[in-house]
């Protein structure tokens, strides 16, 4: 059976959530990582999203960060303000999983704009903006980042959310707890050196070489061996995990682009079939 790199990305990200942890999930792929973790190794994890639905048990993907119908109920219904203050600001958020569009070597995130902020050039375009990312990345005890369609850059076009800032002690000096602990792309798993806070390649996906990854990264990427560690070979996904993910969201097995194309065709299909049946 074939599978998409995104599917292995989600499975790898889900392993970053430990049982019993309070985990904040961001838009998109993190929903699936949280649901898979809860299904597999972390049944007692508390999954919540910024819109204020706490203790979700998702049976399929949220259509957006505020979609209440993809879990059969949840335990605690609060507003967004309370999520950030009574949970994140008080230090109760063990981990957050966030998607990024542009990343630098210290795990700082741009999710606001590609190119110039004022969209002066034809190639410049807006991303979605911070949403909840700024304070989650800044105040949760760990940040797990995912990068799917985005890119690594030496300098972000716009710093939306803090990673390890300029590395070393800079984040602690700014008074921020936590920080990025892992980054997962479609090619591998990255971690951050405990002293320099620079990211390094820690795990490699199947049928992928270190060179494949180096080609995507504009700086001289460090790998596990540079820090006296072993580069992990990430195993291919288990069939049961793939089955869960495709039930959770059929987009994963075919790409979001293809999924949306099929969706856009669906209404005329309804129209034709509806007309035939009425």
């Amino acid at each position: 059976m074939k599978y998409m790199r995104v599917e292995l990305l989600i499975i790898t990200a889900s392993k970053e959530i430990k049982d019993g942890e309070l985990c904040i999930i961001g838009q998109g792929i993190p929903f699936a990582a949280g649901a898979l973790a809860k299904r597999k190794h972390a049944p007692n994890a508390i999954i919540l999203c910024e819109a204020g639905m706490v203790d979700l048990n998702l049976f399929q993907t949220l259509e957006d960060i505020s979609d209440p119908g993809s879990s059969k109920g949840f335990s605690y219904s609060i507003g967004l303000f309370d999520v950030f203050t009574t949970i994140a600001n008080r230090g109760y958020a063990d981990v957050c999983i966030l998607g990024a569009a542009q990343l630098d070597k210290f795990g700082n995130i741009n999710s606001t704009v590609v190119g110039d902020y004022y969209i002066s050039n034809r190639s410049d375009f807006r991303l979605s903006g911070s949403g909840g990312a700024n304070e989650f990345a800044g105040h949760c005890n760990r940040t797990v980042l995912t990068l799917v369609g985005g890119q690594f850059v030496n300098k972000l076009d716009y710093i939306t959310s803090p990673g390890w800032l300029t590395g070393g002690e800079s984040r602690r000096k700014a008074g921020l707890p936590g920080g990025p602990s892992a980054l997962i792309t479609k090619y591998g798993l990255f971690r951050f050196d405990e002293n320099s806070k620079e990211m390094y390649l820690a795990g490699l996906f199947p049928q992928t070489t270190v060179e494949d990854i180096r080609e995507q990264i504009p700086w001289d990427l460090k790998v596990a061996e540079d820090y006296g560690k072993t580069l992990e070979k990430i195993p291919p996904p288990k069939i049961e995990d793939l089955e869960f993910l495709r039930e959770f969201d059929p987009f994963f097995g075919i790409s979001a682009h293809e999924g949306r194309r099929l969706q856009a065709q669906a209404l005329p299909v309804f129209y034709e079939r509806g007309a035939a049946n009425d």
Binding site: F84, T85, A88, N89, T112, Y117, S130, N134, E135, A137, G138, H139, Y158, I159, T160, S161, P162, L165, A174, G175, L176
Partner: peptide, 13 residues
Amino acid sequence: VMNAIKETDIFRI
């Protein structure tokens, strides 16, 4: 507000 914002372009721009 929470102070993570201060380290980013949301604060600066």
